[in-house]
């Protein structure tokens, strides 16, 4: 239980720092998007009681999926910008916040893999 709470704190603080970085670099909307995704981790703390353990894991799991999607989007945008080399234009400049987000994306992917393997089953069948 303790490690789940620590995990939530790590993801929350890391995403808040990255969101703030985007805002300081002038990318207001992208910063807000990261903040929206960080609320997934924040709301994980509001899961109280005995079943809360599972649902806190759920917040780490889904929040990590969202962070992984966002960092994947940055990576895809960068890769597509390489086409600019053909027409002699500049490629996308990766900012500090982009690098941080992609690093958190890698960590989030590890989280998804780990939780899927140990805590969350792919699907459940329920016979009425």
């Amino acid at each position: 239980m303790k490690s789940v709470t620590i995990q939530l704190w790590i993801m929350l603080i890391a995403s808040l720092i990255i969101g703030a970085c985007y805002i300081f670099e002038g990318d207001l909307i992208f910063g807000i998007i990261i903040f929206v995704f960080s609320t997934v981790f924040l709301l994980g703390f509001r899961e109280f009681g005995k079943p809360s353990y599972s649902y806190r894991i759920v917040h780490i799991y889904v929040g990590s999926i969202l962070i992984a999607i966002t960092s994947g989007y940055i990576l895809a945008s960068f890769l597509f910008s390489l086409v600019n080399l053909i027409i002699g234009e500049e490629i996308m400049n990766l900012k500090v916040s982009d690098i941080l987000l992609m690093s958190l994306g890698v960590y989030s992917s590890y989280n998804i893999y780990r939780l899927r393997k140990n805590a969350i089953r792919p699907e459940k069948k329920d016979i009425r």
Partner: peptide, 12 residues
């Protein structure tokens, strides 16, 4: 099983 990925994702 205790919790499924679909339940997890839909919860959020």
């Amino acid at each position: 099983s205790a919790i499924t990925s679909m339940e997890a994702i839909d919860h959020v």
